[in-house]
Design a protein around this nucleic acid. Structure first.
Length: 126
DNA sequence: TCCTTGACTCAGA
DNA sequence: CTCTGAGCCAAGG
């Protein structure tokens, strides 16, 4: 078992749980809230972080609103097999609108992130 | 151990 | 706006 990865995943889930209904965030933004862990270099993490968050989403428990996490282009991105229908439906139920290109307007729906207080309480910031 | 994948992103064309 | 290719590297076969 690899405790490091589990810890990272749990941290990601805690952040995702803070995203309010009707708002979305991106893999990259979430990765950016976390410090480079596993001894990865800042540069490596900036390029790999988003995918690591994606990996955390793939293994997230049911109490995490994974559907509020989309990619930097404002689109839902899922595994090859799934068309992302469920994710889109869930977001629309919360009032998030998609344009004719299946994209979300990040200027309107992007979650600005947890307040500093929250980050400090969770040891993600000094 | 080598090879393929991957819920990503950014810069170019 | 859409499509490519490169960058990065952990996991699983």
């Amino acid at each position: 078992m690899i405790p490091d990865r589990m810890a990272y995943h749990q941290l990601v889930w805690e952040i995702v749980r803070e995203i309010p209904p009707g708002k979305v965030s991106t893999y990259g933004r979430i990765a950016g809230l976390l410090a480079p862990i596993h001894g990865m270099s800042e540069q490596a993490y900036s390029a790999r972080g988003a995918r690591m968050v994606g990996g955390a989403m793939a293994a997230c428990p049911s109490n995490v609103p994974w559907h509020r996490v989309i990619n930097a282009q404002g689109k839902v991105s899922l595994r090859k097999s799934d068309g992302g229908v469920e994710q889109r439906t869930r977001l629309e139920d919360e009032g998030v609108e998609f344009d004719e290109k299946d994209r979300v307007d990040l200027k309107r729906y992007l979650w600005q992130g947890p307040p500093d207080k929250w980050l400090i309480e969770h040891g993600l910031k000094d």
